[in-house]
Design a binder for these strands. Structure first.
Length: 195
DNA sequence: TAGGCCATCTGGTCCT
DNA sequence: AGGACCAGATGGCCTA
């Protein structure tokens, strides 16, 4: 991990405190695996309090209760969304782990990780294809069906320059024509990989 | 200080 | 109804 702000305190926490609904600042997900997500137990008590609300007759029940219910659902949704993003980040971290970087401990940003992974996969595929091509050439001398051509390869949508570096693939697989914006989006991360 | 990156909140939409 | 997913907004932290 590079030095970045790890977990800025949730900004709306004080607001939640004001509402009496706040749970303690959610601890960072220590890892991708542990599912000990903070149960959003700060809610559900609206029912219990409405239980007590039986004492006071109907009047303020409707609007206020609806407000509280809405707030409760919002907070739950916030928790789920937070966890979802944590899992997404964990997956991104796992992806970073298998990508070679220079220097070793450099941390790619999210977009860099995705772009580099794309290029890296392309490079590996191309390597396999070339190696397979040599094998296929050898196999062709022995028989007709020996190649690896069937394997789908993002290389088919990349610039065909044979001598291009792995990071020179600038076209999105989804858009073989590669608009300018595509080229920009899939350009290699700058200055992070080698000299 | 501006710009980049990030985490979080939020409301909308779609799916089960 | 409730959850997942998404995109926009917001604010904090860091670096050039």
């Amino acid at each position: 991990m590079l030095v970045k702000a790890e977990s800025p305190a949730p900004p709306a926490e004080d607001e939640l405190l004001l509402l009496g609904l706040a749970s303690p600042a959610p601890s960072l997900p220590s890892s991708a695996g542990d599912e000990e997500e903070e149960e959003d137990d700060d809610e559900e008590e609206e029912e219990g309090e409405e239980e007590a609300g039986k004492r006071r007759p109907g009047r303020c029940r409707t609007a206020e209760a609806a407000q509280r219910l809405k707030r409760s659902r919002r907070l739950k949704a916030n928790n789920r969304e937070r966890n979802r993003m944590h899992h997404l980040n964990a997956a991104l971290d796992a992806l970073r782990d298998v990508l070679p970087t220079f220097p070793e401990d450099a941390k790619l940003t999210k977009i860099e990780t995705l772009r580099f992974a794309h290029n890296y996969i392309w490079a590996l595929t191309e390597t396999l294809r070339l190696a397979g091509g040599a094998a296929a050439a050898a196999a062709a001398r022995a028989g007709p069906d020996g190649g690896l051509e069937a394997s789908p390869s993002p290389a088919s949508s990349c610039s065909p320059a044979p001598s291009a570096s792995p990071y020179a693939c600038t076209l999105s697989p989804a858009s073989p024509d590669g608009s300018a914006s595509d080229a920009e989006h899939w350009a290699p991360p700058r200055g992070r990989f080698g000299p």
